[in-house]
Nucleic acid binder design. Structure first.
Lengths: 119, 119
DNA sequence: GTAGAATCTGACATTGATGTCAGGTTCAAG
DNA sequence: CTTGAACCTGACATCAATGTCAGATTCTAC
């Protein structure tokens, strides 16, 4: 699939897809003319990348993480180095903390929304 | 309390606290010499502001939201305008969506961490 | 009153993903 | 072969919170 279709199917801009490739997050074949040709797997991968961005991981860390994920591209998944594991544990803790903060914020919004509905 | 203590108690930099004031998120009395003097309530308020930032709200929206929160500063809380309510509902949906993405990312990290522990 | 810590304002820098634009090339359909 | 859509690279802009620094002022303790 070409970049336009991938962008449409994932909701991610073409600009970002090219950026992901530049950061080593997303590989693509090239047509003889030089245009990107993505495998069907790319859709899932882009969605995962977006989720990891939303979770606050930076592209460099995602680039190291992706080869260790299973189901990422069907290829054999590497085992994370001990150093990476430590970093991922820290990221995990940060994510859990962020989820608590999000739940708090959601509850605050609910309070305000409810007060407006009642008043 | 002065800005240094508030920064220490909230983990937020002095720079950010001054920025919050500039954005109308955080009020402070002034000593005769012009230094900021925060009420004890400020600690909770700063933490809430941080949570709302973590939830992806921008300072302008937080500034409109804060007067409608109860327990924010003990003062009477305003009722949100219908327009604000609509925006808050959209933010709420975005937050819920982000929580799902965070849970997914956390699970991905867990997979990688577990694979490394087993392998 | 004096020394040192804390604070003030104002300005400029940083970050990292993404937007946008220009000028050129490739692709697909007639 | 031609035409318009889609794509290419490269460069510059943006956003919003935060970092950082300089030079001046205030506070606190002796």
């Amino acid at each position: 699939m070409r970049i336009g279709e991938l962008a449409r199917r994932t909701g991610v801009s073409e600009r970002s897809l090219r950026y992901y490739e530049q950061q080593g997050l997303l590989a693509a074949e090239r047509t003889p003319g030089g245009q990107r040709d993505y495998p069907a797997q790319a859709v899932d991968r882009v969605i995962r990348i977006q989720e990891l961005f939303a979770a606050g991981l930076h592209s460099r860390k995602i680039a190291r993480l992706l080869p260790c994920m299973r189901d990422s591209d069907g290829g054999p998944s590497r085992i994370a180095t001990p150093e990476l594991v430590d970093e991922l544990k820290a990221e995990r803790a940060r994510i859990e903390n962020m989820m608590v903060e999000l739940a708090n914020s959601r509850d605050v919004l609910d309070d305000v929304i409810r007060a407006a509905a009642e008043g």
